Simulated scan of single mutants.
Amino acid sequence: MPDTQPTALVDAAQPTLPTIGILGAGKVGTVLSRLLLAAGYRVLIAGSGSPAKISLIIDVLAPGAVAMTASEVARDSDIVILALPLGKYRSIPADLLEGKLVIDAMNYWWEVDGIRDDLNDPRLSTSELIQSFLPASRVVKAYNHMGYHDLDEGPAPLGTPDRKAIGIAGGDELALADVAALVNASGFDPVLVGTLRDSINLQPGSELFGANFTASGVQDAVARFPSTERGLEVAAARAGDELLSAT
């Protein structure tokens, strides 16, 4: 298991870039497509319908990305980014993602997903929920806490002063290294914030959610999380759940 202390991660360039698949052709999905295309990756992207429905949008917002079905994206990609509404996670082709690295960039929005207690339970991070749905995949949380405008406007080369940072969370060291490389290539400093259980501090309600911080800012926000209102709520809910489990 990786050290759960927030630690800035730096990764060397890979000799052969993996193919990146993005499930979700909304604002976050198209912004990530542009960033990764600019970094030299091949990008496949799927929307909620047929490729023909999004091809014109992709030609304008992410020229160079290839519009495909969700199944084709899952099958033909080395790394898959989930950028669709969280409430639709059961539509993800889990069988085609077996053994693959999956980046969870999704968030719970009640306006989109409806009132869902299962998606807003402080005892469980939403990435833990996704990992349970994709038991044969390696899930890492990333790209979810920064607004799409900041993602679009914030990338900078490695070593740039005050370069912005993306928090990542997971339990697989090799997967975390691969995601760190991807985040760095897309123009941001990757910062480890813990395991998937800890990724709740990247979700809505946390100081980090919607923030546009440097690596040290991300680390400081992670350190403050346990004492915040949301952190105390999460700790109380989890302590109660553990007490019930023990009786």
Rank of each mutant, 00 (worst) to 15 (best):
V222I: 14
D76T: 03
L17P: 04
L9N: 02
Y89N: 13
I115R: 15
K100R: 06
D198S: 13
V80Q: 02
S132G: 14
A12F: 00
G159A: 09
Q203A: 15
V234W: 00
T247W: 00
R75N: 01
D189V: 13
Q131N: 06
A215K: 11
V193Q: 03
L9K: 14
A246V: 04
Q219H: 10
E111I: 11
W109S: 13
M106I: 14
R90E: 10
L56H: 14
V28C: 08
Q203W: 05
P155R: 12
R90Q: 12
N120Q: 12
I130R: 09
L37P: 02
F133V: 08
D241W: 11
P6I: 15
G24K: 08
W110F: 09
N212Y: 05
A211M: 08
A74E: 03
D95E: 14
E242D: 07
L129R: 15
P122T: 14
L61S: 10
L101N: 05
L44T: 07
R34I: 02
G87C: 09
A46L: 11
P135Q: 12
Y41V: 04
L196P: 00
L176C: 05
E229G: 08
I115Y: 08
V43R: 08
L96N: 04
F225Q: 11
D78M: 02
A94H: 09
V10K: 13
A165E: 05
L32Q: 14
V102A: 11
L9T: 07
V31M: 03
A13N: 03
A165M: 04
I81V: 09
A221L: 06
V66W: 02
G231D: 02
K53G: 07
R75Y: 00
D172W: 03
L244K: 12
G99W: 00
A62M: 12
E242C: 05
N144Y: 10
S199V: 11
P51N: 11
L36M: 13
G240P: 01
G24H: 10
D241K: 14
G29A: 09
E128H: 02
A25T: 15
S50W: 03
V80T: 14
T4R: 15
K164N: 06
L232V: 09
A52R: 15
A46Q: 07
R230D: 01
S137N: 09
A246Q: 08
Q203M: 09
I166Y: 00
A180K: 12
D3W: 00
I45E: 00
L101F: 01
L124S: 11
D11T: 14
L61M: 13
G154F: 13
R116V: 09
N120K: 13
